[in-house]
Amino acid sequence: MSFGFFNYWVFIILLMIGLYTVMSRNNFVKKMIGLSLFQISVFLFYISMGKISGGTAPIVISGSLDTAEPIYSNPLPHVLILTAIVVGIATTALGLSLVVRIKESFGTIEEDDILEMEDGA
């Protein structure tokens, strides 16, 4: 999995699909799913750049008999993405709760139906 820019290309494709889902779909739940995908793709981007070939997880191996110091991957992107994942779930929760209230109040979660109702209102 470590040849060239493959990871970054996958990131780009995922990002495009996610963004397209958000923008093109009428259904609010589907939009939220697209948004989650969009965010997940960015996680992959950050984690990929922290990787060092032949490195290992950034947890100190104590008492190892190896004299050679192991190479640790960069812990900083991991920390950033931990935070970003939390932000993602927070957004998802809030978005879905809005979807639930919209369903209760409008009776539908399709964007064009709602736009129609709003224009009428």
């Binding site: 999995m1 990871n7 989650s36 997940i40 996680f43 984690i47 990929s48 922290g50 990787k51 060092i52 490195g55 290992t56 997880a57 950034p58 947890i59 640790y72 991957s73 992107p77 991991h78 993405i81 931990l82 994942i85 939390v86 993602g88 779930i89």
Partner: peptide, 16 residues
């Protein structure tokens, strides 16, 4: 996990 981000993997599995 394959990218050495075990903490993140753990969280992503639990959350995502």
């Amino acid at each position: 996990i394959s990218l050495d981000a075990v903490d993140v993997a753990f969280t992503e599995a639990a959350v995502g």
